[in-house]
Simulated scan of single mutants.
Amino acid sequence: MSAPSHDHDEMDECVAALARVHAFLHSELVEADADVIRVHLHACERCMENYEIESTITEMIQRSQPEEKAPDTLLARVSTMRITRRF
């Protein structure tokens, strides 16, 4: 059984796309990077299959965890804090 053909030449594109699939799933990429992943997934059946598997697993994990909300007092304290960085 042969591997599915790719519309692109480099397997490096697949490696790069799959390395960032979790960040893509969680909307942690800037839009330009997310667009690159979207284009790749649209062109590459193998990577799309991997993405769909990861997406299903992520959804199952999210559904199995109860949504937790921080207490209002903690939210109020955090929102009034001033964050400073020391270099």
Rank of each mutant, 00 (worst) to 15 (best):
M81T: 13
A43M: 05
L74C: 07
S5N: 05
M11N: 06
E28T: 02
H6R: 11
T56M: 05
R63H: 11
A76M: 12
E31Y: 06
M11V: 13
I37W: 03
V15P: 03
E49T: 04
A23G: 05
Q65I: 15
E54P: 01
P4C: 12
N50T: 03
V30E: 01
E10M: 02
A23F: 09
E52Y: 04
I37Y: 05
I53K: 15
A70G: 02
A76V: 13
T58N: 12
R86T: 13
R38E: 02
H8N: 02
E52D: 10
T58R: 10
L75T: 12
S5T: 10
E28L: 13
A32H: 02
A34D: 01
H6G: 00
M81K: 09
M11E: 11
C47F: 06
S64V: 06
K69F: 15
D12E: 14
M1H: 06
D7S: 15
A23T: 04
E31V: 14
V39F: 03
H22I: 07
H8S: 06
V15T: 10
K69P: 07
I61Y: 02
I37R: 05
A43Q: 04
V30F: 08
D9N: 12
V30D: 02
P66T: 15
Q62W: 02
E31R: 14
V78I: 14
D7M: 12
E59D: 14
R85Y: 15
M1I: 07
D33E: 12
C47W: 08
R63W: 01
S5V: 15
F87A: 04
H40M: 03
T58M: 03
E59V: 04
I61Q: 12
A16V: 01
I83K: 09
E68H: 13
M81V: 14
E52V: 00
T84H: 13
I57H: 13
P4G: 00
P71F: 14
L25I: 02
R20E: 06
E54W: 00
A76C: 09
R20V: 06
E45Y: 09
